[in-house]
Write a protein that binds this DNA or RNA. Structure first.
Lengths: 157, 157
DNA sequence: GTTGAAATTATGGTCAA
DNA sequence: TTGACCATAATTTCAAC
């Protein structure tokens, strides 16, 4: 997949304004509407644009706390790892889950209403998954930066 | 801000399909187009919907590696912390930055092309920010789950 | 919340560079 | 191969009910 300068412009705009009308997008990237739309469709079809999403303010829907949890399993066998992965998939509060190379087995980003809600979630859901040995929670004091944008190199790659 | 069941339905759909036509959205949530659009506008105006975004496939734009970095500063004075925050804001590869309560000072999520690219980024950018004492990098072996959706409680909150 | 008409936007064909 | 222009279809938007 080769992206030229115009494709990258399109992606940069669409990452910030996912619902911009095609007319305006075309004007911003210096194209007329048709070829602009054609490029967007190609980017969608190739999967470069995976999907579109509304970005919510977590605090305004009562889910203002983000925490990180490091999970240690009792063993690293395939069955055990897969079981954990499967259970995590069912928990919508777990917004991100990475199988780690170092120290801990999994790193999770979890969204909760507040500390009380997180404590309950950890005790009633996370800790009860079979094979979980221990959980260490890292609590942010302040979210300094949050972006959903993939950085795009300025020129062709 | 009080969200009723229909608002939550709308938000759930819009988090997954940010560009769904209002007609279809209305049908999905059991409303006719006009009141549905009215609700969406209210959610936008109140800031519950912060914005819309195209979600890209990082691998397909040549940015397939996500790493976490724990940053330790030489001190926690306000000036030092603020300087770090300011510099981080300029680095588009730093997709997330949290000021932490415990162990390390900052937790960063960084997007890079590959390990070579990350190493360069860490050496040339991160480590050169004034006041950075040390950086510990956690590397995911596998991304198990990634979601941008804020979980919404089923009933009124 | 509903209906329906008007304005805006998306889409696809065709031609030109 | 890529972009421009134009006609048509779909969608959004806003009135009145």
């Amino acid at each position: 997949m080769i992206l030229d300068a115009i494709d990258k412009k399109i992606l940069r705009v669409l990452q910030r304004q996912g619902r911009i009308p095609n007319n305006e997008l075309a004007a911003l990237v210096g194209l007329s509407p048709s070829p602009c739309l054609r490029r967007v469709r190609v980017l969608e079809d190739k999967g470069v644009i995976a999907r579109y999403a509304a970005i919510l303010d977590p605090g305004l829907v009562g889910m203002g706390l983000t925490v990180f949890a490091r999970v240690y399993l009792t063993g690293q066998g395939e069955d055990q790892v897969n079981h954990f992965i499967e259970e995590i998939g069912k928990l919508s509060q777990v917004v991100e889950c990475h199988l780690m190379a170092g120290d801990c087995d999994f790193l999770l980003r979890i969204v909760a209403e507040d500390l009380v809600g997180y404590r309950r979630f950890q005790g009633e859901r996370l800790a009860r998954i079979k094979g979980v040995q221990s959980i260490k929670t890292d609590i942010p004091m302040q979210m300094v930066k949050q972006s959903w944008e993939v950085p795009l190199a300025p020129d062709g790659r």
